[in-house]
Amino acid sequence: MLKNVEVLPDKAALVQRSLELVLERLQTAIQERGMASIALSGGSTPKPLFEALAEQDLPWDRLHIFWGDERYVPPDHPDSNEGMARVAWLNKVPIPPGNIHPMPTDEPDPALAAQRHEQEIQQLFQTTPGEFPALDVILLGMGDDGHTASLFPHTEALQVRDRLITVGNKDGQPRITFTAPLINHARCVIFMVAGSNKRPALSQVFAAEADAMHYPSRLIQPQGELWWLLDQAAGDGIV
């Protein structure tokens, strides 16, 4: 694992640096393998990044879009990560609909939705059960409790090691989420973290020793590159 930590002056600089890294990694993937895959995160921090990506001239038919996690709501719900990314980016570019792979949220049982999405990913990457594909880029945020994707402190999802997709739990509300092993098979993981409220958790995530069950972002140790991009408010005194 190649770990990089950068503290940027403000959120605008954080978004610009993220854009540079994402474009470089996607273009390299397309050159080397003919296609590129990226998993998106939710929340307010990556929204300007998505809006910037909408202005790029990319070979859209070579790009496949995923999400690292999703609230169990319809795509048109205000809390939907898919819905936000479509409005900010995907609806504005000529990407083939079949290249967009949202997490299904229409099953009565979220576990069935997770299973369905796992099978879709296996078919696309031509992997067998128990085998983890390597996505080119996974974007992540971090909550002020140290969670990432929908891997929340002291929840069952943190223990899942044999699945690509599982059900997360936030205050009794189900989420669909990438598992830690799937994230860790990525070629490049980029955390975008902004705000002074993230500093206490960051200090534990970056500490020499701390409990990953309490600070799940510590579980993210990808086989490829790991980038922590922090704005000044989040990174002050941490690095």
Rank of each mutant, 00 (worst) to 15 (best):
L112M: 13
R161T: 07
A186C: 13
N197Q: 15
P108K: 10
H154C: 07
N169Y: 04
L158C: 01
L151H: 10
G98T: 06
N197C: 12
G146R: 10
Q126W: 06
R187F: 01
H117N: 09
H185R: 10
P94S: 07
P129I: 14
Q123T: 13
H185A: 14
N91L: 00
F152S: 04
T105S: 02
P174G: 12
D144H: 15
Q173M: 14
E107V: 10
V167S: 03
G146Q: 06
A157P: 00
P174T: 07
A194M: 05
G168T: 04
D109Q: 05
F178R: 03
L112C: 05
P133V: 08
G195C: 03
E118T: 08
N91A: 03
K92A: 03
D162S: 03
Q159F: 10
G141W: 07
L124V: 11
L124P: 13
R116F: 14
T128C: 01
G98Q: 13
A186K: 13
F152A: 09
I183H: 14
Q159T: 13
T105V: 03
E120M: 02
A111F: 09
G143Q: 09
N169S: 09
P133R: 11
A114R: 08
M142V: 11
M103P: 00
D144R: 12
P110V: 05
P181S: 12
L140E: 08
H154R: 13
P108H: 04
N91W: 00
G146Y: 07
T166I: 11
L158A: 03
I121H: 12
G141D: 10
I165M: 11
K170S: 14
A114H: 11
H147N: 09
T128V: 02
A149W: 09
V193L: 08
F152Y: 13
G172D: 12
G168N: 07
T177L: 08
M142R: 02
F178N: 09
Q122A: 08
N169H: 07
L158I: 03
Q122R: 12
A186N: 13
T105L: 01
V189W: 08
I165V: 15
D162V: 01
I121E: 08
R116L: 15
Q115S: 15
G141V: 09
S196R: 09
T179M: 07
T177G: 02
D136K: 07
L164A: 05
E156R: 04
F178G: 06
L182M: 13
H117S: 02
E120R: 04
P133K: 11
P97W: 01
D106N: 13
L182W: 13
R175Y: 09
T177S: 10
T148S: 12
F178A: 11
H117L: 09
G130Y: 02
D106F: 13
Q119W: 14
P174Q: 05
M103K: 00
V137W: 07
I165H: 14
I100T: 00
E120N: 06
E156S: 10
S150M: 07
P181D: 10
